[in-house]
Write a protein that binds this DNA or RNA. Structure first.
Lengths: 168, 168
DNA sequence: GTCACATAGTTGGACGTCCTACTACCTGCA
DNA sequence: TGCAGGTAGTAGGACGTCCAACTATGTGAC
């Protein structure tokens, strides 16, 4: 081939250029940021899920297990789980259903509020959480795919974004 | 209350601290980065979807429309769409099914490869893409929720991450 | 030329997320 | 004390994503 055998360009950089070319300069950077975020999350989630799959859980369920693991009593009301993880109540119901069916957690009555349901971490759940964390730490978190400086910058920017969205 | 009326702390910063306390220092930053990414994506997607809902499309389908809008011929093979958007072929089938049912795109035969299917942008799809982009630019992309410097830093870090993952 | 292998697209299923709607229960105000 | 309004949790449904499996078609090596 006479043309420089140019491999694929970055699709997001291309989109950003097209945005600018169409007179949308003011929005081009934001578009690139949002689109990058979508794709990077997909990449990170995929890496995480491939590790967790060996343990028979998904990231959503793993997060529930870790939340319970770190909780003082080893149990939390459903609504607290939803608040901490920033997900819809029905997503908590879904995750707890599956964790309970797998024998990793147990639902029990709240001692004072009969509307509420406590989710309690069972021993198999605790063991799975620790084992999965070991693998995640070794295979993903110690090298998340960006330089240490990039990691810091990333967390800082996203913290700003989350705070602006009212996350905390 | 005598205690400093401390509002909710950042759940991710808390998790990071717990990670360090448990002897997982080497992984704590990576964990925080990945978790931040998950949550920030959810926030961004939510903002985008709330705008697109008015136009009757989702972000996945909007991306297909824009890809066709920017394509030279106004049409692309399914597989090309999947490659550019980095999604599974079945996700493309799903999105094109719905776009076609809505009269926004049309499937047609590929002129030389009988295995392939071309997706062609129809006039209503082109108009919807432009109108939705106008709203997205005005309501999300011009102010994505982080400072301009943050936007640049974010895109840079995520580009590094995507390149490392073999995205382009 | 043929056949093994690769590629394009679809179908069916699992899973997570959200939304709407609904039941059960709690709480504060009149 | 009693009722209105808020809160906890669940059911059903829409949607996107992936995976596994399958059909149809293209291609290269023998």
């Amino acid at each position: 081939m006479s043309a420089p055998d140019r491999l694929n360009l970055d699709p997001i950089a291309e989109a950003r250029r097209r945005w600018a070319d169409h007179g949308w300069e003011a929005a081009a950077d934001g578009m690139a940021a949002v689109t990058s975020l979508m794709r990077a999350q997909q990449i990170a989630l995929s890496r995480v899920e491939s590790v967790l799959r060996r343990h028979g859980v998904t990231f959503a369920r793993y997060e529930v297990l870790m939340l319970l693991y770190f909780s003082r009593a080893g149990s939390l009301p459903m609504v607290k789980i939803g608040e901490r993880l920033q997900v819809h109540p029905t997503s908590v119901t879904n995750a707890v259903d599956r964790l309970e069916r797998a024998g990793l957690v147990k639902r029990s009555a709240h001692p004072t509020d009969r509307r509420a349901t406590l989710v309690e971490l069972l021993e198999p759940g605790r063991e799975l959480a620790l084992a999965a964390t070991g693998d995640l730490n070794a295979e993903v978190f110690t090298d998340p795919g960006v330089s240490p400086a990039g990691v810091t910058a990333l967390v800082d920017v996203l913290t700003e974004m989350r705070r602006g969205a009212g996350d905390f």
